[in-house]
Amino acid sequence: MRTAKILIVDDEPNIVLAIEFLMQREGYKTEKAFDGLQALEMAAGFMPDIIILDVMMPGLNGFDVSRHIRRAPELEHCKIIFLTAKGTQRDKQTGYDSGAETYLIKPFDNDELVTVVQEMLAYG
């Protein structure tokens, strides 16, 4: 089985640092992006299995990133997990509508994030 690839997108370096640690500990390959445009570039080259995506970022926001990715046929298999401080019902709806599989709210639980990623990789 090949190594799963996770793209971590957040404008907060400290949060990226924490998620990166958790993912690498599980043996996944990771890449980081600090804003939306960067995320799209990385996604096209890195072809991640899962994108952990923040919403409020300078330039392109997370929802727009998600929509762009959903329009790219080569990233059809790619799963999107929103991880954001925006926690209203409407934000969630916007997130799912933009094409995400899961929506998690900051501050998150380390184990929960790891479990979600594991299950997503196992069951699709």
Binding site: E12, N14, I15, L17, A18, I19, F21, L22, R25, M56, A85, K86, K106, P107, F108, D109, N110
Partner: peptide
């Protein structure tokens, strides 16, 4: 403001848990 508060809290929570667990 809540968003701005959540961001550092998120880092603090996650990283402190990492230090604690691992």
């Amino acid at each position: 403001v809540t968003h701005e508060l959540r961001t550092p809290v998120t880092s603090i929570k996650s990283l402190s848990k990492i230090i604690l667990d691992y």
